[in-house]
Design a protein around this nucleic acid. Structure first.
Lengths: 204, 204
DNA sequence: TCCAGTTATTGGATCGAGTCCAATAATGGC
DNA sequence: GCCATTATTGGACTCGATCCAATAACTGGA
């Protein structure tokens, strides 16, 4: 799991450079009015190099979010396996949410300018949502004692709980200065979902 | 609310023509490999004319879905206002789902070929999901006795329940031949969500 | 019949995201 | 110095989407 970057031409650029350049430009102009070419130029690299680091321009809106979301698998794995599934998922999501304090608000949601980019943002948003829901569903399905025929229910739960959490995150970000931590927002949003599915998913 | 198409040059083409042309091409080639130009050519119109009828190529994946979703406002309005909110929403969604029988499976979900188009489909999918969630949320918020400070909860409920319904629809479509009506799928998926939020949203 | 207003259709130009490929640069190991 | 490996680059290309000006087809009225 080490670098394994001992051979070949060393990178002359970095993700961070591009992220910084993009952040500047998104402030100066809008997200929409900033082209990939602009970002690459300011970062001092070729347009193609940009696509060596990011698969899409919209990735830049999610750098912070993706960092946070990356902790979900670990949070799920660290759960007490004797607790009810819904409770485990709830705690895992809260743990992920705990990673976001008032100061750490991702690009995708803060600046209203960005929000104008509805369609492109929607695409990238759902992509992430589905990935997280998939992780949760995998976790739910792996629990011993989980009935196979309850799978549709598990999938519904996974999607619903992640969607609720995402909604909470959106409200938190929109709350502006004075929003506290993300945790409480998520708690309020996902607890009813977990409670509702508890009777169906958790062994009697 | 009548035609009001008495003046001006009459349309030489129609949405239906383009939809048919697209359906043929999606079968022959993939969705991905079919360009807007292809569709327009087969329909016998200009490429620009296509964009007079549809705002995006992806709209074609959702013609059936959009028809069905259009009935949601009416279904919500027709609800018994004395019943608990969560129950009203549940019934409204089930009524919308009832519009989809085994024979009526929309393009967006049936053919696996289409599913390959993840990103473009995701964009259009979330757009629709958010619209429906917005409608539900509006409905929930308009209920008398709905506490204003419960608004975040209402929003979480709206998003979660719509997401669960969408998941159910996806499973239903993926079930292949022999899938029955959409109703039962949706019922199983959204009932726990409604139950979970009932204690929080419905007046004690 | 001619004209004005209205709407539909069209061609052409333009932009920008994303992909592909072949050439080249910079490293480490031999 | 040669080789395998990896990063970077330029260029060409496709395609979705937008914009604009021109034109076609209809209406009603003078």
């Amino acid at each position: 799991m080490s670098d394994s970057r001992a051979v070949g031409r060393p990178r002359g650029s970095s993700r961070a450079m591009l992220e910084e350049a993009a952040a500047e430009l998104f402030l100066e102009q809008t997200y929409a009015k900033t082209t990939v070419g602009d970002i690459a130029r300011r970062a001092g690299v070729s347009r193609n190099t940009f696509f060596n680091y990011f698969t899409a321009k919209s990735d830049l809106l999610w750098v912070d979010v993706d960092d946070g979301l990356a902790t979900l698998p670990a949070a799920l794995a660290a759960c007490d396996r004797s607790a009810p599934v819904t409770e485990s998922v709830r705690q895992a999501l809260l743990r992920v949410a705990a990673g976001f304090g008032p100061g750490r608000v991702p690009w995708s949601v803060t600046h209203d300018q960005v929000m104008a980019t509805t369609s492109e943002l929607a695409a990238s948003a759902l992509a992430r949502l589905l990935v997280q829901a998939g992780l949760v569903h995998e976790f739910v399905g792996a629990r011993p004692g989980h009935a196979v025929d309850a799978d549709p229910v598990g999938r519904a739960f996974s999607t619903a709980v992640v969607a609720a959490a995402a909604t909470a995150a959106a409200e938190w970000a929109a709350a502006g200065v004075g929003r506290g931590d993300l945790g409480p927002y998520v708690d309020v949003a996902i607890s009813p979902v977990c409670a509702g599915f508890a009777t169906v998913l958790d062994p009697a």
